[in-house]
């Protein structure tokens, strides 16, 4: 159920797009209406979520320090792991967002008889994550060629680099292979690692299946069903969508509509799911705050008005003992009756 239902859901989406796009007149719905709708829902959902987060204040400065703080002059400050200034925070965040710094630290614990525990470095998850995210990013950027007319020349360079091994015809892109590999590895990890399998929800399998569906349909289009795919018509539609003058000039193969519909599903699903970690990572207070809380006061907008149990109350309760013990008091004991 945890992975069966999401898998079937993706199959259902494929079928809907396949059959739907065959119905005369529905091409416009799948090619124009759904993409606009999906993009609108994505933007609305994304912004709504970020605003929802932003509405709550950050009452306390709760950075996690992963290195030596700024301290005495002769103690070497770790600027990236315990940032003291805004630019150091930016550097820490860049390292996190661009290189997945925290995952790079990952270790695997093992318990042997004895008992003996070990915590060896383990970089697999970090590698799989990098593989997937960067491949996806490059594929996404490559797609800009469809939406821009004329497109910037750097896209040519990117495509050249991406296909530099010159294998197959048409020339295979490295990122196409890496994208699928990354997704499959992440999926296998979820299936095979007992702990990860146990914590996984349907919400974790669905995006993986969906992204695989997108990648596979895209690859089919480019490498296998190329003869049926009218690239010129697709480019016209894509540019039309981007310039708000969409037209569908020819029959485009169903495989294209399936690909596009799955992308639409991803856009709609994105803001309401864990995929929002893309935005959330920038908001994480343990990472994006300065570790300078003793040097500069952090303000809590709802700081409640709470006073300590007062010294006067304390002294009233214990004055006699304090005087006896020679501890100074604010108010002396009343003079004893003779």
């Amino acid at each position: 159920m945890k992975y069966g239902a999401p898998f079937l859901a993706v199959i259902a989406l494929v079928l809907i797009a396949w059959l739907g796009s065959l119905i005369p007149g529905m091409q416009y719905v799948f090619g124009v209406v759904f993409p606009y709708l999906a993009m609108a829902m994505f933007l609305y959902g994304f912004i709504r979520q970020v605003v929802y987060w932003g509405k709550s204040p950050v009452p306390f400065s709760i950075q996690t320090t992963c290195g030596q703080a700024k301290s005495l002059d002769f103690i070497k400050h770790n600027k990236l792991e315990a940032p003291d200034t805004n630019s150091q925070v930016v550097a820490r965040m860049l390292l996190e967002v661009l290189t997945f710094r925290s995952l790079f630290r990952n270790t695997q614990a093992r318990i042997y008889s004895g008992p003996k525990l070990t915590h060896e470095s383990s970089k697999w998850l970090w590698m799989f994550a990098l593989l997937f995210h960067y491949s996806f990013l490059v594929v996404l950027i490559r797609h800009m060629r469809l939406f821009l007319n004329p497109y910037p020349v750097c896209l040519d360079w990117l495509e050249f680099l991406d296909g530099i091994f010159q294998i197959g015809a048409p020339n295979w892109y490295i990122t196409d292979i890496c994208l699928v590999t990354g997704l499959v590895l992440l999926l296998l990890r979820r299936f095979c690692q007992t702990k990860v399998r146990y914590i996984s929800l349907a919400n974790d399998y669905f995006p993986l299946f969906l992204l695989l569906g997108i990648a596979i349909t895209g690859i089919l289009m480019r490498y296998c069903l190329r003869g049926n795919v009218d690239v010129v018509a697709i480019k016209q539609l894509a540019v039309g969508l981007a310039t708000f003058q969409p037209t569908i000039t020819a029959d485009i193969a169903s495989i294209f509509y399936i690909h596009l519909f799955l992308v639409c599903a991803l856009l709609v699903y994105f803001p309401y799911s864990k995929l929002m970690h893309m935005g959330g990572v920038f908001f994480s207070p343990t990472r994006n705050m300065r570790n300078n809380t003793r040097a500069a006061r952090h303000i809590n907008p709802w700081n409640p008005d709470i006073k300590p149990h007062s010294y006067a109350g304390y002294e009233d309760e214990f004055r006699e003992f304090m005087v006896d013990a020679g501890i100074p008091v604010e108010k002396e004991l009343p003079a004893k009756q003779a």
Binding site: V58, I62, V196, L201, K274, P285
Partner: peptide, 29 residues
């Protein structure tokens, strides 16, 4: 508390269950 602590919202919404934390906890080990 969701309205008072942004951390709570972020930490509720962002987890992808990658499992990196799973064997880092001394109570779990």
């Amino acid at each position: 508390r969701l309205d008072k602590f942004r951390s709570l919202k972020i930490f509720m919404d962002c987890c992808v269950r990658c499992g990196a934390c799973a064997d880092k906890c001394h109570f779990f080990l």
